[in-house]
Amino acid sequence: MGQLNKLALRNVHRQVHVDPITSRREKLVRAIHLQKQVLAARLKGETYTVERRKRVRNTEGELVWANTQKPVRAWFFEQDGGWYVQCRYGARVLLVDGKHNAVFVPKLDQELCGILGDTA
């Protein structure tokens, strides 16, 4: 107990300097950039994947870190003779204009690229 008396003890509340609204917007922008890459891969006929580190059991039964490939789920899908694009935040589909939750395009090409931005 004598050692604790020598320390300068205080109560402090850590201040977070990042606005939660700004961080959510940045997360959505990162997801839109990821969807651009998913679209570019789909136009080439490929599946876009990202590398994840995951704990798996090896042959001896020990938990070890391994790199695995995880496919990215596309926000666009084919239905009604065209393609719909829905913006997602986690599992929730966001409303585009306050009433509608999707944008319809007839073909998966330049029109969809224009919605998501340039794929370059």
Rank of each mutant, 00 (worst) to 15 (best):
I32R: 11
V64W: 01
L116C: 06
F76C: 11
L108F: 04
Q3Y: 07
V38Y: 00
F77T: 12
K6D: 12
D118P: 12
G45A: 14
A120I: 02
V96D: 08
N5K: 11
V56Q: 13
A102F: 06
L43R: 13
G2H: 12
D19I: 01
D19C: 13
Q110C: 00
R52S: 05
T59D: 13
A66C: 12
E78S: 14
F104V: 05
A40K: 15
R25H: 02
L112Y: 05
E51H: 07
T119A: 04
R10N: 10
Y89G: 00
C87M: 14
L43A: 07
Q69F: 06
L34V: 10
V72F: 09
G90M: 03
F77G: 03
K44I: 00
G82C: 02
N11V: 02
R52Q: 12
L34C: 11
Y84A: 03
I21Q: 11
E62I: 05
L116M: 06
Q110S: 13
V16L: 06
G61W: 04
D97W: 13
K107T: 14
V105T: 07
R55I: 01
I21S: 05
G82S: 01
D97H: 07
A41Q: 12
R42M: 07
M1T: 01
Y48H: 15
R42G: 00
R14K: 11
K27W: 02
Q86F: 01
I21L: 14
T47N: 09
T49M: 07
G2Q: 12
K107S: 05
L63H: 09
L28Y: 00
D19V: 03
A66Y: 04
Q37F: 02
P106D: 04
T59K: 10
E46Q: 15
L108N: 05
I115N: 00
R10H: 06
L63E: 15
